Simulated scan of single mutants.
Amino acid sequence: LWNADEKTVTGLTWNELLDQWQNSERREVCRDRLRAADGVDPDEVILPPAIAKERGLTSTVCFPSGNLCPEGSVIKATSIDPTVIDDDGVYRKRGRARVFSKESDAIAAVKGQSEKPIEAGDVIVLIGRGPIGCGMEETYQITSALKYLSFGKHVALVTDARFSGVSTGACVGHVGPEALAGGPIGRVRDGDTVELIIDRNTLDGQVDLVATVDGIDPVEALRTRSIAEGLDRDENIPDDTRLWAALQQVGGGSWGGCTYDVDKIIETLNAGQAALAAKTSDKSQEEVNAK
């Protein structure tokens, strides 16, 4: 992942710089100050992976897939309340979907200020909050609201929005494709059953639609259902945000679009332009034939 033999702007390679730092007077002074001021052993601050594992430290994030997030998603697995984790280190939840397209509506339901308040066991599905929908807003408010519910640890959240590092709980974000890009998350309906399985040991995870409120096979429902009625991008999104979202989508969406591949973007744009030109030509020919 890191070529330490490459030269840096100093003219030295990373290996040379790190060797200098390892044995430098400045480093020793810093280590001594840490011991004297805080009583902390510097070697207890940053641990090699093998030692960290011996002491029971685990990785933080998991990247679940599944029929609701075929391109991927993210959850900070270590932030899930330990009391809802099974003895084998796996978080398992199956609950009723509560679908929202605005964070404010979801928060109102969490606070009991809607006709159908959120209940213990529910899975909040917040859609239309990706790059196309709103510029991919940070949804800390909803995770914060859940944190202070007496039963908040028994509620999960699945969304195409993003989270910051302060979010806690069983919160799966960055779901791809996003709802407005045709992602299956946009085909979930209120009352469907969503299942989450997050293994905090292996960092494997699944987020799936496992049953539907109307009895349709889940796979068939995600294939044939239309995107949630009325779902659309927010009004008054700045033009630069709309353009960024469009280019990201061309580049591969929330996950593939984060790879800045100019050649692939240009190729895709050219292919789309050619397809549009062909369609226009066919339509013109149809008009000529009609006349």
Rank of each mutant, 00 (worst) to 15 (best):
212 T>D: 07
170 A>I: 02
247 L>Q: 08
235 E>N: 15
216 I>N: 03
228 A>R: 15
181 A>V: 01
167 S>K: 05
232 D>P: 00
163 F>Y: 10
182 G>H: 08
212 T>E: 09
251 G>L: 03
248 Q>L: 12
216 I>W: 01
241 T>A: 13
177 P>C: 00
176 G>P: 00
230 G>W: 03
198 I>Q: 08
247 L>D: 01
194 V>F: 01
198 I>A: 12
187 R>Q: 14
181 A>L: 07
207 V>P: 05
182 G>T: 08
192 D>P: 06
221 A>T: 02
228 A>L: 15
185 I>L: 12
207 V>C: 06
183 G>P: 01
171 C>I: 05
222 L>Y: 01
182 G>L: 08
254 S>T: 10
251 G>Y: 03
202 T>H: 13
246 A>C: 01
218 P>G: 11
221 A>I: 11
250 V>F: 10
219 V>L: 15
180 L>I: 04
254 S>K: 00
180 L>V: 01
208 D>E: 12
198 I>N: 12
240 D>T: 06
218 P>E: 08
238 P>Y: 04
238 P>S: 06
164 S>Y: 05
244 W>K: 09
218 P>Q: 11
243 L>Q: 05
184 P>S: 11
174 H>F: 11
218 P>T: 12
182 G>E: 02
179 A>P: 08
245 A>K: 01
210 V>F: 02
229 E>N: 11
199 D>Y: 02
215 G>H: 08
177 P>R: 03
234 D>C: 09
196 L>T: 09
212 T>S: 02
203 L>H: 15
177 P>V: 00
182 G>I: 03
233 R>S: 14
224 T>E: 13
241 T>G: 01
202 T>C: 04
227 I>C: 10
196 L>Y: 09
254 S>N: 01
169 G>Q: 03
246 A>E: 10
177 P>S: 04
251 G>K: 12
201 N>W: 04
199 D>W: 00
211 A>I: 02
239 D>V: 05
239 D>F: 07
180 L>C: 00
192 D>Q: 06
184 P>H: 07
248 Q>R: 15
253 G>M: 12
234 D>K: 06
172 V>M: 07
199 D>L: 09
207 V>N: 04
187 R>F: 00
250 V>M: 09
173 G>W: 01
238 P>E: 09
218 P>K: 12
218 P>C: 13
210 V>N: 12
216 I>D: 09
169 G>P: 04
239 D>L: 12
251 G>R: 13
184 P>D: 07
183 G>Y: 03
169 G>R: 03
236 N>Q: 05
203 L>A: 15
